[in-house]
Amino acid sequence: MSEKSSTAKRGAYLAAICANKQIGERFYRLGLEFSGAGAEAFAKVQAGQFAQLDVSGAALPPAETIPEELADVAGRKVLLRRPFSFVDVTTKDDRTLVDILYCVVGPATLRMTTLAAGDSVSIIGPLGNGFRVPEGKKTALLVAGGMGAGPLQHLAKILTADFPGIEVIAFAGAKTAEELPFERQLDKIAQQLEFSLPEFAKYGVQSLVATDDGSAGFAGPVTDCFSEWLGKSDSAGESTVIYSCGPEQMLTRVAEIAKARNIDCQVSMERRMACGIGICQSCAVECRVAESNETIYKLCCEDGPVFDSKEVVFSS
């Protein structure tokens, strides 16, 4: 997690499915259990790292349960693995339990919904570089858009466990209350402006919610909520670090806010990727070359997915 810790060795492992719980209309939480070498590799995983799942062999759900907008793509044969980051990682005896938060968006995630306890899935990982904790930070601000809340929950857990001197505050946004990837308790508190999501509260982390349509928490983009909060806060720029994960448009805005206030900021980027292990060169992220006007393509899978926001040339 910190810059001094070692990165786990990547490999191809088989994980047992121990849970696959629907937590919202489109959101699921998949529980995976590793033993042996896989348990060892995934025990040391950093928040923000990811793994490639092969779900091509999973069955489709019954036709009548397939959302209409996915009906056309549902039957497509899945070829490539799909990358996922982790919402939680725990170790128990000699096993490692890894939870993945996913949203049903296409043929692969549709198939994932039918995975059940007793099934197994092939996983390549852990991959990439996660969030880092620079020296001297006293405040960590987590800014999540939509599914970006997954790895930031994992980060909240690690920060509060391993860095007791750092105060952690989370901001989570989505278009609507329905699209916040949290368990359904939201309905009861949807009208409240300030509350703490249980997902973050369990680590003692205060959180603020924003929805574009105002159906939960702050009415407007999470970046406005964040910016407003920063304006009122007395956190010093140099002792603060921002961690963000979400749509690129949101990351672009977070990076601008961080730059204007001269705060360190790390963003988790997303790209279409085939291999995830640095071979296919698909997941290029345009990056500035220090002290020049030149840019180069780095790989989201190997150089990222977490990048320093100053380095990234955002595409939206």
């Binding site: 899945v78 070829l79 490539l80 279409r272 990727m273 698909s282 997941c283 345009e286 393509y297």
Partner: peptide
């Protein structure tokens, strides 16, 4: 060579 802009890949039926 830097290569092309992204997206650089897309999955298709039984291919990419």
């Amino acid at each position: 060579r830097k290569g092309n802009a992204t997206p650089r890949i897309v999955e298709t039926d039984s291919g990419m």
